[in-house]
Design a protein around this nucleic acid. Structure first.
Length: 439
RNA sequence: GACCCCAUCGUCUAGAGGUCAGGACAUCAGGUUUUCAUCCUGGUAACACGGGUUCGAUUCCCGUUGGGGUCGCCA
């Protein structure tokens, strides 16, 4: 009774590419679905780039997305002696030989000898794949400076970790034939392989930094929800088979199978990701949404110390669907917290600088000052009554008032917004507006 | 160049011989609304091409075209 084991084996470079993290997500999803284990190996053999900070970036990205791994992290750099030992073993068994490859004078390296036969395997997403013997070449497994090469370390560590399913990007399919030969020569069971199509840009080329946000950290900084990025990335190449799209982690775990993974590359649609983010936000607890907005605003330096949390939460709730990303609270709703909010010139011209507009605003102020109750319904009734009394449309009263208290022509429903702001604040703002624009 | 992979609306996808080719995002047109965002209704929009196989191909096979990947003492 062997249990399924998958792994994510990134080399820490300081950034985690979305294509890479998607591979991690699929490994995680598959392991969780099968009740198996999801392991983590850091391929830190490139000492130049593999700094502690770079490794921490990988760990942070995974934690943020909820990709919890089983057991201890295996740092590949600790396995060097073992890798070299395996190379010796291959040398002894005749599966490898030493040679000054290319006669460059760099010294002898260890080269793996391909078996000279065709090698085929069944890829869990691409189907049956075969490579003819003549298309398979011997390859270096230990450099002349004595360091093990990727292929050897990768296979050796997967054997050590007992990995049963290797799920990775399809830029590795060609390597797979080499790896299979290595497993066999080492007398180890060959794992199952599943190669994922890449995430591409509109030109069909690998999606990169130039195409927009390409690293997990960037999505986090922009204020995306990890659930939304997880969901979107999972759906890029996989679908549950029904029409569900907005899904929880648990739902995806329950539905995930490798045979439903497509083998054609796909593009990440930022607009749909934004929509997905909104969907997940709407499913969140309102208090958590407010906290996340605050955190995002703090990150961007938009948070004002001393802001009353109850007022902040009410304001967030009032903004509702208008917030697509958490930082939007700071971008589009700053007027809630800023008594010196700027006035949108166009709105002022259109709503406040028309004949009689300011007089009307004074009347509205009087009514608001006298309103027995500052609830949305009561305010609605009061302003409605004034409109009726003057024979005006509701808009004639609503628009100037909105600009007077928020400086902008767009925002939440006026009466809800006034109720959240409260009488004192509203009156103060009207006074400011009046003194600013009164002739 | 050699080897390999891929091909359904603009995008993400469902589809595993017979469907009005379905859904989502985007888009367009109405409706609701004090604005915006929502929300509701409806619409436009796809099987790359050519051969087969079959009573019947989006679906199976071959080819063409197009796109991509790999060909390191990188990972």
């Amino acid at each position: 009774m062997s249990t399924i084991r998958t792994r994510f084996a990134p080399s820490p470079t300081g950034n985690v590419h979305i294509g890479n993290i998607r591979a991690a997500i699929y490994n995680w999803l598959f392991a969780r679905h099968e009740g198996g284990q999801f392991l983590l190996r850091i391929e830190d053999t490139d000492l130049e780039r593999s700094t502690p900070a770079a490794t921490q970036t990988v760990l942070d990205s995974m934690a943020w997305l909820g990709l919890d791994y089983d057991g201890e992290v295996l740092y590949q750099s600790t396995q060097r002696a073992h890798h070299l030992e395996l190379a010796e073993q291959l040398l002894r068994s005749g599966h490898a030989y030493k040679e000054d490859k290319g006669g460059t004078g760099k010294g002898e390296c260890v080269i793996f000898r391909m078996p000279g036969t065709d090698i085929g395997y069944h890829d869990l997403v691409k189907g049956d794949l075969l490579k003819k013997a003549e298309d398979l070449r011997d390859f270096v497994i230990v450099r002349s400076d004595g360091s093990p090469v990727f292929h050897l370390g990768n296979v050796a560590d997967d054997i050590t970790m007992g990995v049963t399913h290797v799920i990775r990007g399809d830029d590795h399919v060609e390597n797979t034939f080499k790896h299979i030969a290595l497993y066999r020569a080492l007398g180890a069971p060959v794992p199952q392989f599943a190669h994922l199509p890449m995430i591409v840009n509109a030109q069909g080329k690998p999606y990169s930094k130039r195409d927009g946000a390409a690293y997990v950290g960037e999505f986090r900084e922009r204020g995306f929800l990890p659930e939304a990025l997880f969901n979107s990335l999972a759906l890029l190449g996989w679908s549950p088979g029904d029409d569900r799209e907005v899904m929880t982690r648990d739902e995806m775990v329950a539905a995930f199978t490798l045979d439903r993974v497509r083998s054609a590359p796909s593009q990440l649609d930022m607009t749909k990701l934004l929509w997905m983010n909104g969907e997940h936000m709407r499913r969140m607890d309102p208090l958590a949404v407010a906290d996340a907005c605050r955190a995002a605003m703090e990150r961007e330096g938009l948070w004002r110390d001393g802001t009353d949390m109850d007022y902040f939460r009410a304001a967030v709730a009032c903004m509702g669907d208008r917030i697509k990303l958490f930082p939007d609270m700071g971008h589009n709703a700053a007027f809630f917290f800023d008594e010196e909010f700027p006035y949108d010139e166009k709105s002022v011209r259109k709503r406040l600088q028309k004949p009689g507009a300011l007089d009307l605003l004074r009347d509205e102020r009087a009514i608001l000052a006298a309103a027995p109750d500052f609830s949305p319904a009561a305010l609605d009734a009061a302003i409605h009554a004034l409109a009726e009394q003057r024979g005006l449309g509701l808009g004639d009263l609503v628009h100037p008032l909105r600009v007077a208290v928020s400086g902008t022509g767009v925002g939440p429903g006026l009466f809800e917004m006034l109720a959240v702001m409260g009488r004192d604040r509203v009156l103060r703002r009207i006074d400011r507006t009046l003194s600013t624009y009164a002739p």
